[in-house]
Design a protein around this nucleic acid. Structure first.
Ligand code: ZN
Ligand code: ZN
Ligand code: ZN
Ligand code: ZN
Lengths: 524, 524
DNA sequence: GCCAGTTCAACAGGTTCA
DNA sequence: TGAACCTGTTGAACTGGC
């Protein structure tokens, strides 16, 4: 059974030194059964410029580009056949090249990237359900809500037929362990502000690490602190004059931004000039500046406004108080949650600057993800329920378990997602709101028109999130957290798909009009 | 004489008596249950060229290479079976060889070291937090250098005992019978870098993909290719759980990360300029903005500081001034180069924000690669030497040819690497510094703790490099240059890896303490 | 159908530990 | 010494653009 016969005619069966594959059109007569020019094994075709077997093809692809230097355990002239080919990489590779295989034919990193992307795109096209457009026609409710400053534009199914309540969530930011919640509804910017910036992980304090560094130059790193808790941690709390920040008017963005820029820029200037004087002035680890604070505060304020409105919007028809709501109840309550969302969005200056089409696109595309985030915020781990404020005095509790009624393992996934949020994140209103903003201003929503403009807005929130983290925790940790949070956004997209499926399965007749509009249910 | 032949090369893998293993794909009909060719015990597969059991495999590995002469207690013709195999090593080993086991297939000492390293590296990449090496204990010098602003923390061997320039001869005492011993070592400041230590060949593959995504044509996200679909609608595969999906969805992560980074640079500026930029305004062809400029400038400044310090750091003991330095001289001079590197790193704000463990990991892992880059920068093509400033007025010239002293073709490879840099790149300080920064902030270094944080920083420099190129040459060219430069980084890793072994063979007694620490030489 | 790349289970080398 | 284990490498089978 010795196919070792091949050993006698070691090299290429065809031409001694090259078995370059002939041009496709021209069939080489002598080739009856193709043979690998490298090892003599059965060949299927031409690979990287020569006729080879599958294994030599793979071998060449894997090793030719790496500059890796192999060593021959023998005399650098090993004969390569189907059995011995594995024994000496060096001689095998050499033979590959000798018979004319070309490294150039191996796709570069870039080419592979392009290819992969192309495949992905094609895959998308096939799978893509393609939803209907956001025409003015099928977005009446949304448009009304967006335009109408008031509440009359509402048409709730449940106004007629009272039903259960609640939703995943509305804003329970209130329940947040952080004090600010307790401040609750006042809008007094000042008070909330303070909370804003400073509160936050108790342990971390708003240490302005940058400042600290300057103050204690020599031993930048305490060297003792464990890496995780780390490098900077507990330091004195520097109570910067946050107060001023709030007086700043959001409208005068230009001025503010200039401040920010100069701040950013100053670092450089410092470095360039007397770099010796303050070599440590870090780009990071500095407290939020006025602009940043203002932008963050805007979110907080918009969110606060969210807490009360529910009641005004519609008569209290929270009948289910008597018992636990069904899944359908809960779903329809998301109607309310979404209205809140819209209201909140409208409080964001940037949002209002977008054209109506984009506003609709963002809301339609993002509202469910936003709700999931709210769900995370309002989750009460102890009771396993969402705490949802309805009136100033009344808080509703809805068992998360209601999700078990949904198909698939929505409940488990939802729980896992919530759990995957570090309690510290969940309870940090600022983090959650920033994530919400990033989610809202997602430039990749379908039907978006001014994509770049939206992208810019989103970027500003990414940036702000990062800055916020830097101002709260230092160095490595800030970046780690930032990345983990970004990962959460990625997970959110996926989880969202599963949630949406629940809506799509609904019978339009049982669902609130607004929901029908948002999920294009009629079209199903 | 088949045996002879088979010993020298695998040409005849199958000797009459052998039970040489056939290629895996080819099913040997006669083989029902595999049996050890040596002892008849149950065999699992092919080991060192023959089908053997686990114990004979281990036996052969342990004893075949040792020149050890065993003595047969009997007549030199013992029967070897599962029971008797341990009675006579001599006959057992002889039988091993008889049935075709080849000592050449046993990895040499050096190969094993390389392999071990690679494994450890990979392990570190996966296991993120776990702290291991780089303990404070074995990184004293580094820590001193990192903390101490001054230079007193230095302990140079050459300060104390100027010792013979040594011959490498002993270094290549490599025990391996295989030629590899030939590696010898060579060092150029640059080349020595390679040894750097932590060779890391991460393939930039997946990462590059992300980076390229952004660079591609203006309409990065043709709206359809975008991963996000609308608020509902199947984003990726549908039913998978969030957890699973996460892996599959790395692509989305890439995109998000990119957004986050560009946010870092653009937000402030863009907003100021008027975020109503036309929707299609291309990201290319615009000059660097303030933030980007600042970050780049920081590198330049840090680099400037690098040029003078050498003399302060240590008394000039460049004995070789009288003549050309030997390879060992050069190797030990890398000590100085590394000190500069550390100094430079410390001038980077971002670097300082990392915890000490990470700072050490990055320096330990990256310093040799960084030195290779410096080698490229300081190379004088005309004279074929490196120009290394020692004092402000004095520049040292070291012939690159010193690398020829090293075994193997280190010199050639090094030269090739340098030459492969377009002179335009080499002379562009910004490009070289950006490459250095990318190399420094390599998240895949072993023992890194906050891997993702470092990755973020690195991505940031990738982004900056791209932007820099865009600002200097036009869109298309920028793109291809960017890719070529990335490829260089990849080559750098390989070059580095290929010579790590050189350092490993050094005799610790002849090497500067800092180098010992960085290369963990003592541990050998 | 060709020929790039991708995937994954088996393979074969080293390492560990009793 | 050898069973158990770990990991990088191989290669058969498969995917997908052209
Ligand atoms: Zn082959
Ligand atoms: Zn060979
Ligand atoms: Zn055996
Ligand atoms: Zn014997």
């Amino acid at each position: 059974m010795e196919d070792y016969v091949s050993l006698t005619s070691p090299n290429t069966p065809v031409s001694p030194l090259s078995n370059a594959c002939t041009s496709p059109g021209e069939v080489h007569a002598s080739m009856s059964g193709k043979v690998c020019g490298v090892c003599g094994d059965k060949a299927l075709g031409c690979n990287f410029g020569a006729t080879t077997c599958e294994s030599c093809k793979a071998f060449f692809r894997r090793n030719a580009l790496k500059g890796k230097e192999f060593r021959c355990p023998f005399e650098n002239n090993c004969k390569i056949d189907a059995v011995t080919r594995r024994f000496c990489q060096k001689c095998r590779l050499k033979k590959c090249l000798d018979i004319g295989m070309k490294k150039e034919f191996i796709m570069s990193e870039e080419e592979r990237t392009v290819k992969r992307r192309k495949i992905e795109e094609n895959r998308m096209k096939k799978t893509k359900p393609v939803r209907t457009n956001n025409t003015k026609n099928n977005s009446k409710q949304l448009i009304q809500l967006l335009n109408g400053g008031g509440s009359r534009a509402n048409q709730r199914k449940s106004d007629i037929k009272s039903e259960a309540e609640s939703s995943f969530s509305d804003s329970d930011v209130t329940t947040s362990p952080l004090d600010n919640s307790s401040e609750g509804f006042h809008e007094s910017p000042a008070s909330s502000n303070k909370a804003t910036v400073i509160n936050s992980h108790q342990q971390l304090t708003t240490e302005t690490r940058g400042r600290m560094l300057e103050m204690s130059p020599p031993e930048d790193f305490p060297s003792d602190s464990s890496p995780s808790t780390a490098n900077g941690v507990i330091r004195s709390q520097s109570t910067m004059s946050v107060a001023d920040a709030f007086n700043i008017n959001l409208r005068t963005m230009d001025a503010l931004l200039n401040t920010a820029i100069s701040a950013e820029y100053n670092v450089v200037v410092d470095l360039v000039r007397g770099n010796d004087t303050s070599p440590l002035s870090p780009v990071r680890d500095r407290p939020l500046n006025e602009v940043e604070m203002a932008k963050l505060q805007e979110l907080v304020v918009a969110n606060i406004a969210l807490l009360a409105p529910l009641t005004e919007e519609r008569p209290v028809d929270l009948h289910y108080d008597s018992g636990d709501p069904t899944l359908l109840n809960v779903i329809n309550l998301t109607d309310i949650a979404i209205r809140r969302m819209i209201k909140m969005a409208k409080k964001l200056a940037a949002f209002k600057t977008f054209c109506q089409e984009d506003q609709i696109a963002l809301l339609k595309g993002g509202c469910t993800e936003l709700m999931i985030l709210r769900s995370v915020m309002s989750y009460d781990a102890d009771k396993g329920c969402w705490k949802i404020p309805h009136t100033e005095s009344h808080v509703n509790h809805i068992k998360v378990e209601v999700l078990k009624e949904a198909q698939g393992n929505l409940y488990e996934e939802h729980q896992r997602f919530i759990q995957s949020f570090d309690p510290l994140w969940r309870s940090d209103e600022h983090i959650m709101l920033l994530l919400s903003a990033i989610t809202l201003f997602d430039p990749n929503r379908p039907h978006v028109i001014h994509r770049d403009a939206i992208k810019l807005e989103q970027e500003s929130y990414y940036y702000l999130l990062r800055r916020y983290l830097e101002s709260v925790v230092g160095g490595c940790n800030a970046r780690s957290m930032f990345l983990k949070l970004i990962a959460k956004i990625s997970e959110l997209h996926i989880l969202n798909d599963n949630h949406v499926r629940v809506y799509l399965d609904l019978n339009p007749k049982e669902v609130e009009p607004l929901l029908i509009e948002i999920f294009d249910l009629k079209s199903r």
